[in-house]
Design a protein around this nucleic acid. Structure first.
Lengths: 115, 115
DNA sequence: GTAATCTACAACCAAATGGTTGTAGATGAA
DNA sequence: TTCATCTACAACCATTTGGTTGTAGATTAC
């Protein structure tokens, strides 16, 4: 596991969920305020069922949650998980940056400045 | 596209490449110093060809590069792309954190047109 | 030279993915 | 009640993914 709270499978699911532009779009859309699945679906050129599946993938990854409101199902960004994912992304930034720096130490200055 | 330099397909490939614990492990391993594909393969319980494919996925996403050294192929973290990906991850952190702001401005490029 | 090692790549396979259509159950509106 | 809307979910399909084995080409070691 990478960060305390996440298992490898969790991280897989999160990155997997983000590896689709429609799903990335959905996540940012529902961060403002909740949007019903049907309203969401009307904005994409695919079937309602397809959007339903995308939402399910995001939900399984913990990026969004759903709650009923009458006959509608409201999708919204799951703030707590989003925050944990921010930490996850920061973690990877850290690992890469530190490792890259360590590699820079090994190399000479010319190589460092080549970028 | 989400960040200037990346197309949607680029971002797809990057997140997709990271959605596998073996590949995440490879990325962090080769950040220190380059490792040959065979040496890399010896550390995982899968065939050489399988590791070869994982490296190919990472390479296609721009996360690592390969260069020949004799009969070996050395895999190393592509520092410039890694840096751009750090910016990408920061971008998503920003978008999510500032979710109270108008979303249309932030993600217009990523949007399909509504009807 | 021959043998061992490293890589590339094709062919194949099972499972997952991303889409579709169709059917059925709740719920709200008239 | 009746009808329209929203959702859930199954079945199906094509493509991709992640793995395998096998073969062949370079390169190094002896």
């Amino acid at each position: 596991m990478v960060v305390d709270e996440f298992t490898d499978a969790d991280v897989d699911a999160i990155f997997r969920a983000l590896a689709d532009s429609t799903r990335r779009d959905i996540v940012t859309r529902v961060m403002n305020d909740g949007i019903s699945v049907s309203r969401l679906a009307s904005r994409y050129e695919m079937s309602f069922a397809a959007v339903q599946k995308h939402v399910a993938v995001l939900q399984a990854a913990g990026l969004v949650s759903k709650h009923r409101s009458g006959r509608e199902q409201i999708v919204r960004g799951d703030v707590t998980t989003i925050h944990r994912i921010q930490e996850l992304l920061s973690y990877f930034e850290d690992v890469w940056r530190k490792r890259a720096l360590r590699m820079g130490d090994v190399l000479n200055d010319d190589n460092r400045e080549n970028r």
